[in-house]
Amino acid sequence: MGEAGVERVIANMEGAAALPRRNGELVFESPWESRAFGIAVALYQEGVVDDWEEFRRRLIEEIGHWEGQQGADQASWSYYERWLAALERLLVERGLLSAEEIEARARECRREDAHGH
């Protein structure tokens, strides 16, 4: 990535803050989408993953899987679900997390949900 990181972009935003937003659409439809987005970008920004292409390549593959499956239609399409699939693969394939611990923790989170947390 070039020398201009997200923080630098924000630092340069002061003067523009007064401009009206022309963006009626919510960037994220639900909180998990924004967290999934944030995790992937933060991995890169924090240098945990050094090449953004590693994520992007998997995202393309995951979108391709969806498009290639039988009966793929608009109703089952979720961009961020594909994003999450790519993120999980990146983490497992880079050895940062194991598939087993992801499954186990996801089950715990589901149980917490069931108890109303």
Partner: peptide
């Protein structure tokens, strides 16, 4: 949503 929370907490 639970999977995303799982990833975040593990990381």
């Amino acid at each position: 949503a639970a999977r995303v929370r799982a990833l975040e907490s593990l990381l």
